[in-house]
Design a protein around this nucleic acid. Structure first.
Lengths: 210, 210
DNA sequence: TAGATTGTTAATCGATTAACAATC
DNA sequence: TAGATTGTTAATCGATTAACAATC
């Protein structure tokens, strides 16, 4: 398993290369990528080597080729189907990302909610009853779920997903869930991100005294 | 500057200790914390040492004391005022976190939007015109902003914030912004989090072949 | 005291960087 | 060819872990 940081950088490379491509660039040097992302050129070349991305000593790296390769690494060749649990404010915000995600090979195929008032089977992305969740997952061979329910029902939802053999969960609840052999959990904790930002700023303000 | 990972762990310690406190615990050993968080006891003790959190060889660590100390480290003694730019779906989802954040010493004091239809000066958290953003920041001595505008206006908003000398930004747009000497940026990229989750699962599924 | 845990030092591990030979 | 860049190896750096003396 490659380090988390390396995967994060891979996504940053992808974004930057898309932008360069839009500007009409065809080739780019490790040095330029390094400058743009604020990392060292050695690290760029090392990352590329590890991901089996090859360049040439003449023109550096060929952008379309790298992008194809990165797509391949990220599994964007086949569309990844995802269900979203919890169609509250955060959930519907994510549903709204729809088109952007599809461009990235990710498709939210259905949402689920306990509130009968929110159900809408006819919507572009249908909002279905929580009761049908387990069945939907197995019938449609879903491997991924995004969880945006209130913390109070988070545990229960996680148990359903685990029983349904979901392989990956993007968890927005503040319930801290650990990955298991069967299910990988990616916890996104917005309060933590805010707290971390505040800490870093306070830390920086204190630095001059050092 | 402590490593990012160390700060992340600090937040996990805080969460765990709160839960233990709710269960009526008063003391806890590094070993138990390590088990609960899936890290080593050495690392827990090292982290605590670096954050100046002291225990005793008799009863381990005294939960109320650690929590006070962590609060202090995170700056939760004084309320941190934050503005939110972009009152769309994601923005209002965050506004809804209101009470939870206040418990953590974080208060969203105002939101801003370009859409005149969304303005509401009388709301608990007023939604104000984008035009008044720069003034509001200086008059109320605001240091932090959460940005949840569409990517199309992200650059513009960042420029306003930078001009207004905001010190910390939690950026939810896909515009990748770099920290500067004056402003620390914490980028939360939901698409990247999803892509990373998918990558990790695919990687795991491939592993048995190794 | 005997046993157990912290705090800290030294050892290990892994990731990043520097350097440079190979190559175009 | 001369110059510049990749790919890779060795050196460095920092973070984690193991070990254990000090302490309760």
């Amino acid at each position: 398993m490659d380090s988390q940081d390396r995967i994060r950088r891979l996504l940053n490379y992808k974004n930057l290369l898309y932008q360069l491509q839009n500007l009409g660039f065809i080739k780019v040097f490790s040095d330029n990528i390094a400058d743009a992302l604020g990392i060292s050129a050695s690290l760029v070349r090392k990352d590329f080597a590890i991901f089996n991305i090859a360049g040439s000593q003449k023109g550096g790296y060929h952008i379309p080729s790298i992008l194809l390769k990165i797509h391949d690494i990220l599994g964007k060749n086949e569309i990844q189907k995802i269900v979203l649990i919890g169609a509250g404010r955060l959930g519907s915000a994510l549903l709204n990302y729809g088109q952007i995600l599809i461009d990235e090979g990710i498709k939210i195929v259905a949402a689920f909610d306990i509130d009968p008032g929110k159900l809408d089977e006819k919507a572009a992305v249908p909002i279905l009853s929580m009761n049908s969740l387990a069945n939907f997952i197995s019938e449609n061979d879903i491997h991924f779920a995004i969880v945006t329910v209130p913390e109070s029902s988070a545990r229960q939802v996680m148990d359903i997903l685990k029983a349904a053999k979901i392989q990956g969960v993007l968890n927005f609840t503040s319930l801290k869930v650990k990955s298991t052999d069967a299910t990988i959990i990616n916890n996104v904790n917005i309060e933590h991100e805010l707290a971390r930002l505040i800490y870093m700023v306070r830390q920086k303000n204190r630095e001059p005294d050092d």
